[in-house]
């Protein structure tokens, strides 16, 4: 990834460095979305279906956390994972795992907040029917999440978009190490700082194309799913 090459040339020539960067970007962002989904969907559904003191406050905070500044999250994770921080003994600062952790923190509130909204809306519609069938609280969550699955896909995509586009957190906790923690966004930041604006823009276009492709695949999956399960 050096010299006077355009991003297009790199793609067409199958530049292994570029493919490694694309691969890492996808692994990091998709892993973060997967982790965030495992945490955020049940959490959002739980908040949607329970009533407790301070619930409104929790919802407001959750919605606000969708706008967590990546650089702040990055700094927090950096301090936590640093050898001199509380989780330093794991030794995972400047690794992809650290990047996944940071992005999971960024994406979880998005998925949880959108799940909360979606499941709550669906709950209003399903409440009587499920009550008439005597469905218990746990099964209720399962039913609503499953029936909201196509809407929840949008929440996952929103989370993925956030993760894939984000540079502030992962550049701090990943360190933008060549061949190890360099992703599309940190590579773009690096090429910009090297003044290689055409390559930076080219990489940016590649990144956007990847995000569009992922969304198109998700959309196709949704359409197919809805046709059979509506």
């Amino acid at each position: 990834m050096s010299g006077d090459t355009s991003a297009l040339t790199l793609i067409l020539s199958g530049d292994p460095g570029l493919y490694r960067i694309i691969g890492l970007s996808l692994v990091v962002s998709l892993s973060a979305v997967a982790c965030a989904a495992v945490i955020g969907i049940p959490l959002g559904a739980l908040i949607a279906l329970t009533r407790f003191r301070g619930r409104d406050g929790v919802i407001v905070v959750l919605n606000a956390l969708m706008g967590l500044p990546p650089v702040v999250v990055g700094l927090g994770v950096y301090l936590a994972l640093s050898r001199s921080g509380p989780l330093g003994s794991f030794g995972i600062l400047f690794t992809p795992q650290a990047m996944i952790i940071a992005q999971t923190i960024l994406v979880t509130p998005i998925i949880a907040a959108l799940t909360r909204q979606t499941v709550e809306d669906l709950w209003l519609e399903y409440r009587d029917e499920l009550a008439a069938m005597d469905i218990g609280p746990a099964a209720r969550i399962g039913t609503l999440v499953w029936d909201a699955r196509f809407s929840l896909m949008t929440a996952l995509l929103a989370g993925f978009g956030r993760a894939a586009a984000e540079v502030g957190a992962i550049i701090i906790v990943g360190g933008n190490i060549d061949g190890f923690t360099r992703t599309m966004t940190t590579a773009i930041a690096l090429e910009t700082s090297k003044g290689d604006l055409p390559l930076a823009i080219g990489l940016g276009i590649v990144l956007i194309a990847i995000v569009v492709i992922i969304n198109a695949l998700a959309w196709a999956a949704r359409r197919t799913g809805e046709r059979y399960a509506g």
Binding site: Y126, D128, E129, D147, Y228, G230
Partner: peptide, 14 residues
């Protein structure tokens, strides 16, 4: 006991 509401809600399945 079972009830059918005036506007029954179909679960999003077959």
């Amino acid at each position: 006991r079972a009830i059918v509401f005036q506007r029954p809600v179909m679960l999003r399945r077959s």
